[in-house]
Structures are given as structure tokens and as C-alpha cells.
Design a protein around this nucleic acid. Sequence first.
DNA 1: AGGAACCGAATGAACGTTCGATTGGTTGAT
DNA 2: ATCAACCAATCGAACGTTCATTCGGTTCCT
Lengths: 189, 189
Amino acid sequence: MEEISDKKKAILEATLELVGEYGFHGTPMSLIAKESGVAAGTIYHYFSGKEELLNELYLYIKQKLVHYVDSKIQDELSYKEKFIRLWIDLHEFYSTHPSILFFFEQYVNSPYNKERSPHHFQGKFFQFLQSGIEEGQLKPVKPEILLALFIGAVMASSKIRVFGSISFSDEDLNQAVEMLWSTMALAKK
Amino acid sequence: MEEISDKKKAILEATLELVGEYGFHGTPMSLIAKESGVAAGTIYHYFSGKEELLNELYLYIKQKLVHYVDSKIQDELSYKEKFIRLWIDLHEFYSTHPSILFFFEQYVNSPYNKERSPHHFQGKFFQFLQSGIEEGQLKPVKPEILLALFIGAVMASSKIRVFGSISFSDEDLNQAVEMLWSTMALAKK
DNA sequence: AGGAACCGAATGAACGTTCGATTGGTTGAT
DNA sequence: ATCAACCAATCGAACGTTCATTCGGTTCCT
């Protein structure tokens, strides 16, 4: 893992919370400084400006998420079990970290986002779906289609859960993933 | 339909394009004024401020979308056909109106959004899914689950298509909807 | 005439960034 | 061991710019 100084981490962490709550506007550098217990000038010791701060925050969190996903995939489970676990855990991750959910959604759809591609493309995640096709576990369609179905359901259900006051029970979620699995899995002959 | 003056419509339309391209920041009132061929002061004749302008723009576009969806549902088609058409058309709508896609995603996840609920809840759309359950066309699960699967796939695939340089063929999309339908539909006994 | 629509320069506040000063720790020569 | 030199880290007041908003005036329509 990278060696990030405490101050730097505090700045990133504070920015995440603030942007999640107040949006990109609504969070001036002065607020970030106050909230992270740092002087305004100090931020510029670690980041060249607000834009770089936001970009680094994005990378910082994306890395966290990628590690999280990777750790879930390494298990000694069947493909289906990994599939289910991955979906449930991803949903859980976003639902319990709403500020990450908001930050991501705001960042990805903003001009700050240089790569202009959803973060879910990278890492072993997309690869996991691709290998599922190759191994004959998933239907042989464009992997991006599977990605859209899978991640779309994760994001949408997380948002519904966090935004709205609807609560999903474990059973609800299991129903959802099982349905997803049956949509995407290649039926056994 | 509302009677919206030409100037007002021009302001809304310009704001949509600019926010879609430059984000909420990045689009000062002065730019909106220039782009819509109106003096800065004039904007304040129609809107009390930037916030109200953004809020009205959201309502304005949501209404467009709701009308669009409603018009698709009224057809003399079977439930399944409506389901398919609706998904395809929604995908098409977002894919061919990227500025609407961006604006929505930015707005919904920003503090401007008072209602704090995805816009897809309203209108006949959610109702369409609910009635599908009641009529025995769709599986009897929480309608929000069906919504998440359905709209999640629409949004995610639109984003992949618009952001990334991946192009989906008609066949790709049909595969996706058919897959969705087969999971969500109640199997005939 | 009178009011609504419209204009755009002027205003003032908010904000990102800069900078000169201060602290703290490390190095290396004495 | 001591201290001088040095640099990174930190501070926060001050600066300059950007931007939303205002307002006094002009045009257009009735």
C-alpha cells in the first residue's frame, strides 16, 4: 500500500465527506481545511490545487474499491457463489458508504473525470465477467452488456436504498441477485 | 403543456447543454446568458437565481421524459412488447441526449436535488412495473427490485455507450432486454 | 402612458491560491 | 555533544479573480 501521510489522508477523508454532503460547489477549500484540521496553505503542499485534490481523491477511493473487489474474488468458491457474493458485497459497500456513492456519481459525471469511463471497468472485476463467458458460466454476449446489467443493478439498488427510505431485506437482495444470475448465467444443457 | 416563453426556453436549453458539457461549476450565469442570446439581467426576470434555474430545468426535462415514457406505454401492444419497447426507447433517449444524461446524473447526486429520490420513481413508469406484478406478468417481488434491475441496466448501458467508445448493435440491445425480460417475467405455467 | 421585457455595466461577496513567516526535524561538521 | 545550516511541513492573513446578483436605464408592446 502507498505511504500516505496522516495530514494528506485527513484532507482526502474530509474532502470525501464534504463533497458527499455538499457537492463539489458547496465545499470550498477553506471548509476542507477547517474540517481536516489543517491550514488552507497546507493543502497546497500536498496538492497543486483543487482539481488535483479531487482527482487524487478519486484514485484513492477507486483503489480502495478495487482492493475490496479483488479480495472477494480470490475466495475458494464456485463461480456462481463468487458472483453472488460479489454483487451483495458491492451493494453493501455502497449502501454503507453513501459518501463514496455520491462522490463517485458526481465525479464520474463531471468534467473532472478525465478518463471518461466508469471506474467499474478496471480491475479484476470486468475480467471476472469476461472469464465467466470464456468458461461457459455466463451467456456469450458482449461483456459490456453483462457489466451493464450487473453494475447497473448494484448502483440503482444502492441509490434507492440510500436516497429513498426503502429498506431492502436480505431476502429482497437475494431475490435480486438470483434473478440477475439466472439472467446472465448460461443455462446448463 | 405549459406556455413557456421563447426566451425562457432558450435559457433552459442553453443551461442544459452547458451543464452537460462543463458541469455545474464551469457554467457561470454569464455564459448561460451569452449562449442563450440573452442579457445576464434577463435571466433574473424569469428565475429568482441560479438555484431556481437549475431546479426548473430539472422539472422541465423530467416532464419531457415522463411524457416520452407515457407515450410509449399507451400503445396497443402486449405487456411484453411494451416492456421491450420501453427499455429500448429509454436507452435510445439517453444515448441520443447525452447532455440530459449528464445533467440528470449530476443533479440527482447534488445538493440541489431536494426530493432526493431518483426521477424514475414518478410517472406511469413505476406504475407500469407495479401493474405488471398485479396482472401476473412479472414476478411478485418488491417493485423496487424490478425497478433497480430495469433502470439500472438502462442507465449503465447508456453511460457505457456514451462515455466509452463501445457501440451496441441493435442485436446487443435486444439480447439485453430479452435477458431482462426472461428474469423479470413470471414464467407461464 | 405605463408596464413588462430586456439590457449590461457595476457591485460585492465568495473563493482558490499565494506567500512570507514559523516550526520541527535531520544532517554533518566541529 | 553542540550547533549551524537546511529543508520539509505548516500556518493563516492577504490577494486577485471569478461570479452571482443588482439596478438604473432602454425598448417594446398594449
